[in-house]
Each structure stands twice: as C-alpha cells, then as structure tokens.
C-alpha cells in the first residue's frame, strides 16, 4: 500500500497523513507484531495444559508476566507514532521477537511436551519460581560476588597500572620487575589457589589476592607497552617547554598510554570473572559461584540457571560500565580510530 500512497503527491502540512509515513508505519507494524508474539507466548503458556505429572507452581504467573510485557510493548509501539523516543525502541523489535519465539519453543519442549529430560532442563516458569522464592539468597550472592570482584579488581588494576608505569618509565624498575613478570605472569592465577588458601588468613582475602593477580598481569603488561610506545616527539615538545619529569609522566606518558591501559583493563576484567567463579566454588562459600555449585549439588537446576543468568547480567553490566568509562575518558579518540 505504501508504494501507491507514496506516489500520490500530497501537501506536507496535512499532518494527519504523517501516520502513513512509511518508516513510522513500518515501526508500528514491527512493534505490534512483537506485542502479538509475546501475547501468543502468554496464551500458549496459559491455555495449553502442562504435562499431567508435572506440578509447576508458576505457569500462570509466567503467562501473566508475558502478557504484561506484550501489553507494554503494544503501548510503546502506539506511542512511537507520536513520540520519536519510542520509535528508537523499535530497533530492538527483531530481538524481542526472536526472544519470544525462543521462550515459546522452550516452554513447548519442557512443560508442555516434556521432550527434554527433567531435572536438567526446567521450563521458564521454574526459573520464575526460583526468582520469586529464593530471591533473598540470590541477592546475597550477587552482593557477595560484586564485593569480592570489585575489591580484587580495583586493587589489581591499581597495582598493575602503577607497576606498568614504573617499568615503562624507569630502567631500574624494568630490570627488576620485568623478569618476574615474564616468569610468573603467564601462570594462570588459579594455579595459585591451593597456596593462597593456606597462606592467607581467610578465603576471602585469598580470593582477593587471586582476582587482583589475574587482573594485574594484563593491566601491567599493557600499561607498560603503552608507556613504552609513546612517541618521543611528545617528550621533546614538553621538554623544550620546561616540563619536569613528573609532568612528563603524569601529563604526557600516561595520557598517551591510556588507550593501551584500557585494553589491559578489559582483559583483566575478563580474567577476574573466571577467577571469581573458581574462587567462590572452591573456597569462599558465598556469592553466585558458590550458589551455582550448591544448586548443582542439590540437583536444583532451575536455581543454577537463575544464578547463571544473574551472573551474565553482572558480567556484561560491568563490561558495559567499563566501556562507558572508556568512552568518557578517551572521547578524544573518536574520529581518530574506528570507535
């Protein structure tokens, strides 16, 4: 229809026809079909009975949640006709649609048809059940994990940064630290685990040490290579303008090395997640990693999926946070590199 309407010349001030502008129409159709998909998931969950031998307590709750989401999406799609802010939301439409399809399929092969073996593959409403019944312990786990991770990561990043600057700048520091780094750095931090748990007074402090170690190595190496790679012309300029050594380090070397430092910080963050989970499973007896293991031990697979999901949110949230910090600090790189 749009091709016909587009060819009809019409005065632009007739704003009533704005509704038929092709992009608006397309995003409205997209939004409404996403809402339809979610209401289908809701209807399908609610009206197709679960397998008789199962007793999922939250099938209705899950259906209602999907229905509420469908309603919200429909409202947003209609609002998009008037408000540009909601139109942006339509970029997510294909993903939201795919997600609805995935949930429907999951629901079908578990609760409805029972095709997947049971304790291992619970239906979505089982995870909703965990979230509602066990949220206290999950929240505790998130808090414990976040605290351990933040302490270890910040400590490791700070020590790694200072060490990297020291080796990059001072020949003597390089002479002593470089071989140590070469020798010990490539060792995975988890290899220290048995030693750390007996040397440190508590498993918490041992885990902080391990996380800091895992973070510190890449941060050190990349800070160092960043500092070593600063163009000598930058120093020449500052030196002829009367810069002191301190100024050269703080105002020339470090800012010039910052893009490298951030690569190190990203790598360190990835490493720290791995060590966090292992440390929690083997020593700390708290946090999401420990919860995961506990859930597995009791064959509470729904709890395990819930914890995995939360962990994914935690990790990707932290990565996003680091990205926005980088975007803020290195905004001068925009237009200089592929952003």
């Amino acid at each position: 229809m749009s091709s016909v309407i587009d060819e009809v010349p019409r005065p632009s001030e007739q704003s009533g026809f704005g509704f038929f502008e092709s992009s608006t129409t397309r995003s409205l159709i997209g939004g409404l079909s996403v809402a339809a998909a979610w209401s289908m998931v809701a209807a399908f969950t609610a009206f197709w009975p679960d397998r008789p031998e199962s007793d999922w307590a939250y099938t209705g709750g899950f259906a209602i949640a999907c229905g509420a989401l469908a309603l919200a999406l429909a409202v947003a799609a209609l609002a998009g006709v008037r408000f540009v802010a909601f139109q942006r939301l339509q970029r997510l439409s294909p993903w939201l649609f795919a997600l609805a399809m995935f949930l429907a399929a999951w629901e079908a092969v578990t609760a409805k048809l029972g095709l997947l073996p049971l304790p291992f593959f619970p239906p979505p409403q089982a995870i909703v059940e965990v979230a509602i019944d066990d949220w206290g312990r999950l929240a505790e786990g998130i808090f414990a994990s976040a605290r351990l991770l933040a302490t270890g990561y910040l400590l490791g990043a700070a020590v790694g940064f200072v060490t990297g600057v020291a080796i990059g700048w001072s020949r003597r520091a390089g002479y002593w630290i470089h071989p140590v780094l070469r020798f010990i750095g490539p060792l995975p931090a988890t290899a220290w685990l048995p030693l750390a748990f007996f040397v440190f007074p508590s498993s918490f402090s041992a885990s902080i040490f391990l996380i800091a170690l895992a973070t510190g190595f890449p941060v050190t190496v990349l800070t160092w290579s960043g500092i070593a790679g600063v163009k000598s012309a930058y120093y020449d300029i500052a030196r002829t303008l009367g810069a002191t050594q301190r100024f050269l380090v703080l105002k020339v070397a470090i800012p010039a090395a910052m893009p490298h430092v951030f690569v190190g910080l990203f790598m360190g963050l990835g490493n720290s997640f791995a060590v966090l989970v292992v440390a929690e499973m083997l020593g700390v007896k708290a946090g999401l990693g420990w919860y995961l293991q506990w859930a597995q031990g009791w064959a509470a697979y729904a709890n395990m999926y819930a914890a995995l999901l939360l962990m994914a949110f935690l990790c990707s949230g932290l990565i996003t946070l680091l990205f926005s910090l980088r975007d803020r600090l290195l905004s001068w790189q925009k237009g200089l590199v592929r952003w």
Binding site: A233, D236, I237, T240, G242, P255, A256, W332
Partner: peptide
C-alpha cells in the same frame, strides 16, 4: 646542555597532543 623554556622550538611536524 638541556632544553630550557627560554628556547622554544616550533617543530617541522606540529605534533599536537591528540588527547588535549
């Protein structure tokens, strides 16, 4: 013997600091 701010150089290549 060493650079001094009383002798300022305008280098052939401008070499501005990209982060400033």
């Amino acid at each position: 013997e060493a650079p001094d701010p009383s002798r300022v150089v305008v280098f052939q290549d401008p070499t501005l600091y990209p982060w400033r």
